[in-house]
Design a protein around this nucleic acid. Sequence first.
DNA 1: CTGAAAGCGCTTACAG
DNA 2: CTGAAAGCGCTTACAG
Lengths: 345, 345
Amino acid sequence: MTAPIKGKATSLDIAHLAGVSQPTVSRALRGSPMVNEETRKRIQAIAEQLNYKVDKNASNLRRQHSGTIALLFFEDPTPDDSQINPFFLSMLGSITRACALQSYDLLISFQQLSTNWQADYEDSNKADGLILLGYGDYLQAQSRLEQLVQQGTHFVRWGAVLPGQPGVSIGCDNYQGGRDITVHLLEQGRRQIAFLGDASNHYPEFFERYRGYEAALQGIGQAAQPSLQVDAITSEQSGYEAAMELLQRKVGFDAIFAASDLIAIGALKALHEQGLRVPADVAVVGFDDIPLASFVNPGLSTVQQDTKLAGTILVESLLKLINGEPVESRTIPVKLALRGSSRAA
Amino acid sequence: MTAPIKGKATSLDIAHLAGVSQPTVSRALRGSPMVNEETRKRIQAIAEQLNYKVDKNASNLRRQHSGTIALLFFEDPTPDDSQINPFFLSMLGSITRACALQSYDLLISFQQLSTNWQADYEDSNKADGLILLGYGDYLQAQSRLEQLVQQGTHFVRWGAVLPGQPGVSIGCDNYQGGRDITVHLLEQGRRQIAFLGDASNHYPEFFERYRGYEAALQGIGQAAQPSLQVDAITSEQSGYEAAMELLQRKVGFDAIFAASDLIAIGALKALHEQGLRVPADVAVVGFDDIPLASFVNPGLSTVQQDTKLAGTILVESLLKLINGEPVESRTIPVKLALRGSSRAA
DNA sequence: CTGAAAGCGCTTACAG
DNA sequence: CTGAAAGCGCTTACAG
């Protein structure tokens, strides 16, 4: 019997009890091959009994690494801050799981696009690297990204994959998705397809979707009509307003391609209110395939992003970066999820 | 001009550049009142220029505190692990914000109910305290909770608030919610109300909702019928199956009270498939008020939990606990969100 | 295979 | 108001 340890047990406590030196405890518990098997077992037993856990702060300080990844989630300032884009929540789930699989901890933080997020987490050694997630004005963020690169911060970003971007980006194939879903609408006989979403380099993901839309129209000799495009950001409210704006323009349209599912859902609401039938009068499609998409009535046709794969790739890419391995930006294939909103019953 | 710092700047680097000792740098940057204003400014300027950030590992190690809270999210093992209960995602958002407000970092981790989550995070000094979140078999978890209490781990748990529970629990008023929504159904003239959800002490939240349901029935002199209760856990799939089971029993019913919105949504699907009209043939209500609830058709009447308030209270309670202040378990009021699924059009 | 020593980068009594 | 010293609990060369 030894006197009980006051407070949390340290490796030194274990060492005393086991009759070895403190470094030996450290080695034994980390599974170093150069420690006697019997000694190790004794040490492990004592450690377990005392419910000893390595102090991460001490360990990290010494090893100069944290075993932690920070997920910076940045959003456009929204009036209702309680609502998070379900697509990102889905990403969050898959990133969390991917981290756990690699025995990394995940620190999460919501950032305003406007604040000075920079590399705080990595600079203060709280995290070995950063995952950047969020729709938002890309141009606003770009200089920050460049700064991160310059500082040598390890980060990967979810978003549009375009030439000349600072750092590593992972994103779905927005162009192809936009094109495929538009082709689908054309195949359904739609000929006046509106686009709801910002189509500028401020929102490169939307812009890529728009370019896909444009390309599909060109495929049948049509040009994209400015009168059929209305700006919107990712929210129901914004989608609702955009659809109302479109209706007020009094230009004919028989389909809406919304740049995201939330926008599409807002548009559906507006159409219903105006007594328009979906898909009979207007077909509607979205982008993301959030869980809601299959529950609205009619079910929303959309472009599915594989969030599970995306999370895995984001985490794996970041870990490679941390280990000094080269990583290329890359794109993840999408596929269509077709439901009632774009097809005759 | 001084030689550029290799690697990350430390407080010692700043000290050299400012011509002061390293402790003075530390004091200046932490805002200690006992440092000359002019000196402080000089130090701050240099720190900023070098993009210096206090090393959290060193700081935490020295201060024996981490400034971090761990959110342990545990789920029943589900076949489809990509789907997270939207209600918890909503909680996650509000917890994240509450942490940020208090300048705490948030570590998140998904746990299997079966694994040995214990107090790992606090024991390894990664976190000062734990928030436990998740539906799951309470009896399975109870001994772990007792262990946490015994170890002196700081934690708060989201869940049913019952006498004699280990540790601090925060939860919504499940009993009142169950009662109110059942009273609402009765007021709509429904008299054969089924309950979909596990009604045992394995799932105390559901059980409380069930007890509220029972109490409402007693209010009009009815007893709860075992033939009108079917077990279900929180998932669409489970709700779907429970509704099918109920239909097969061939007992008449004109309303369903589902113990959660996901269950309700699964039930709606089953009813639609069987050609039953909602609410004309069967009224359906749920619990949680997830975002989906307002989008299904007809809109789902449900009991709204205030996740924003819940997150704030969870975080504040935990911080009190960490500071050694006493905290009581408590309940948060609910309110009804009534929509088309329970009312004549 | 094991121990003595150094050091990660801070913070905080203790002197002055 | 500032500095010299100690120490948080580990990990890792360096000896033996």
